[in-house]
Design a binder for these strands. Structure first.
Lengths: 148, 148
DNA sequence: TTCCTGTTTAGAATGAGTCAAAATCTCAGC
DNA sequence: GCTGAGATTTTGACTCATTCTAAACAGGAA
C-alpha cells in the first residue's frame, strides 16, 4: 500500500494535466495514487472505495470525473469487457487484456511491436485506426501474485 | 429486404437450435431473418424495430431472449464497443471489428489465420484463451455500400 | 475584495439490460 | 382430438452503471 509512489509517477499527472490546461487538485491526486498503488484494473466503485480511505468526503461523481479526465489526457486506459463495469488501467505500454472467466481478474498481456504491426496490416486501405483493443477471454492458471 | 434468404441460412438456425435441444419458433425465425437480411451489426433496439415490421406483436424481451439463445448456440456473435449498446453479428468467420468514429458504423475486418496465430502466441504459458476480440477504432473512408 | 473559471458535490435522471410471474404454445403420449 | 409437461413469450417492474443538473466551492487575476 506504498506511500512511496515515485515523484516521477505523480509528475506524470502534473504534466499530462497541464498539457491539456487542467489543474492538479487533491481529488485528482488521490484518485491517481489509487490507480498506481494497486494495478489490478479496478472499477469505478473500487477506485471510489479505495480513494475514500484517504479522502472521506470524495464523491462518486468526482471519481467519474477524474477518471474521465485521465483518459482524456492519455494518462489511463479504459478496459471494457462485455457489459461489465468499466475498469481502469494506468499501464500505457501497448498491451492486450486477458480476462479470467473464473476469477474475473484482468491481466495485462504484453503486445510486441511486430504483432501490433501485423494487426494493423489487416486493415484494408481507407481504414485509419487510432486505437486497437484486444481482449482474450478464458482461464488463467492460478499464477497468483498481485492481480496484475 | 429480400424474401430470398437461402434455405441454407435458415437450416443453420434449425440445426444449431436442435443441437442444443431448443425449438425453432416463429419469433426466433423472424429475429434470425432480420440479422441475415441486413448485416450491419444492429443493436437490440434496431433488431426489435425491424422484426416488428414482420411480426407486430413481438416483444422486446423476446428479442433479448432470441439473441441470447443465438449467441449461446454459436449462431451469432456479440459486438461490444466501449459502453455502447451491444450489437449483433451473424458473421461466424474469424474477424475483427472496426468502429467508425464519425458514423458509428461497425465494419468486419477479415482476420487471416496467421495473424490470429501470432496473437495467440503472445499469451504466456498458463493462459488458456477461448475467445479473442479485436476492435479498431478510427475513421473509415466513406467507401459506401451496405454498412457491412 | 470581487469576478471568473474550472472543479466538486449530491441527488435526480437515463437507459441498457435483467428478472419474475402469468399467459401461451408445442408436442409426446394417450 | 385431448391432456399435461416443459419450453417460450409477454408484460411490466426492477437494477445498476453511468450521465446530467444545479448549486456550492476554490483559487487565481484584476
Amino acid at each position: 500500500m506504498s506511500q512511496n509512489l515515485s515523484e516521477l509517477d505523480l509528475s506524470h499527472l502534473q504534466e499530462a494535466l497541464s498539457r491539456s490546461g487542467q489543474k492538479v487538485t487533491p481529488q485528482r491526486e488521490t484518485v491517481f495514487k489509487v490507480l498506481l498503488a494497486k494495478r489490478d484494473h479496478p472499477t469505478v466503485d473500487e477506485v471510489f472505495n479505495r480513494a475514500r480511505e484517504a479522502m472521506p468526503g470524495l464523491s462518486l461523481a468526482t471519481v467519474y470525473n477524474c477518471l474521465e479526465t485521465f483518459v482524456g489526457c492519455g494518462l489511463v486506459r479504459q478496459v471494457n469487457h462485455e457489459r461489465e463495469s468499466t475498469r481502469y488501467c494506468p499501464n500505457l505500454a501497448p498491451h492486450a487484456h486477458f480476462r479470467d472467466k473464473e476469477t474475473g481478474r484482468v491481466h495485462d498481456i504484453d503486445l510486441p511491436p511486430e504483432v501490433l504491426g501485423s494487426l494493423r496490416s489487416i486493415l484494408p486501405p481507407g481504414f485509419d485506426s487510432e486505437t486497437i483493443e484486444i481482449s482474450f477471454h478464458g482461464r488463467a492458471q492460478a499464477k497468483d501474485g498481485p492481480a496484475s
